[in-house]
């Protein structure tokens, strides 16, 4: 079964097209996922910057009540898994989860070690370095952003609480958003790509099979039947139609068969010719 003409022509085409499309789909999925993740990170960074700028006035006034209210309201949103502000020492000063207030974070923990990994803490990070992905204690996949709260002239000249002007970073905002929507989008994309692959497979195998049947298999079968009929002496059997090459082969075979039959009908003449040659 595997050794017939149709299988031999279809199998390599099927393997090549399907395999290549699957590899391209995997790579395309990886590209799209990376691009979407970068967009999501940029969106979260601008969200974190918006929060930092919104809380700036309350920080300058050292208005803890307003700050707590703002953080709690942000944390109440469905997609926000956590939002907290650390001071310079890594102590959580404001958080939507009151249980973690006053906790000190380990500087080697994920999200902290990107800045505190070296002997001197880094003050500027790339957008992707500010992001981290993890699964929280409730089993939710989270994309978190760590945004520094930079020291500005207004901070060290404010009358309420003075920071030295050479201190670059006053604290850090840490916000984590659920990746549920992102994961659902990626899953939808995955299923669409699988459907696309299956359609490519059906079209390629179906297309190649149909073309082979129409232009190769069917004419070859007609030629086989024609040769069989002519070899049985049925010289009036109609020539196979539709393909010029096949028709030409059939016509040549018919001429040879008719000529051979004539020779057979005159054995002496045939023998003479053989003897002469």
């Amino acid at each position: 079964m595997l050794n017939n003409f149709a299988t031999r022509a279809t199998v390599p085409v099927t393997i090549t097209i399907t395999g290549f499309v699957i590899v391209c789909c995997f790579v395309l999925y990886s590209f799209i996922k990376g691009d979407l993740l970068r967009d999501t990170v940029q969106h979260e960074i601008s969200l974190a910057d918006t929060i930092v700028k919104s809380t700036r006035h309350a920080m300058l006034k050292s208005d803890r009540e307003t700050l707590t209210n703002m953080i709690n309201n942000i944390g109440d949103q469905e997609s926000v898994e956590h939002v907290r502000i650390f001071n310079k020492k890594g102590v959580i000063m404001f958080s939507a989860n009151p249980a973690e207030l006053g906790n000190e974070m380990d500087k080697q923990a994920a999200g902290c070690n990107s800045c505190h990994g070296g002997p001197e803490p880094s003050t500027g990070l790339g957008s992707m370095e500010q992001a981290r992905q993890f699964t929280n204690e409730r089993g939710v996949s989270v994309l978190a952003i760590t945004a520094p709260v930079y020291n500005e002239p207004g901070c060290w000249t404010a009358p309420c609480h003075v920071h030295p002007s050479d201190q670059k970073i006053l604290g850090t905002l840490d916000i984590g958003l659920s990746q549920k929507t992102f994961d659902q989008t990626m899953q939808r994309l995955w299923w669409r790509m699988i459907i696309f692959c299956v359609m490519i497979l059906i079209l390629s195998v179906g297309g190649v099979s149909a073309l082979l049947r129409k232009f190769v298999l069917s004419p070859v079968r007609q030629l086989t039947v024609f040769v069989d009929q002519v070899s049985r002496g049925n010289f009036d059997y109609p020539l196979p139609r539709g393909d010029r090459e096949i028709e030409s082969v059939a016509r040549i075979f018919l001429d040879i068969a008719v000529h051979g039959d004539k020779m057979k009908g005159r054995p002496g003449e045939g023998q003479e010719e053989e003897g002469e040659s």
Binding site: P12, I15, G19, V23, F26, V27, S30
Partner: peptide
Amino acid sequence: NFWPVFAAGLTILCLENY
């Protein structure tokens, strides 16, 4: 990226062996 390489390998080796 394990599966893209696996799919590529499977395709190439299948065709080569065929």
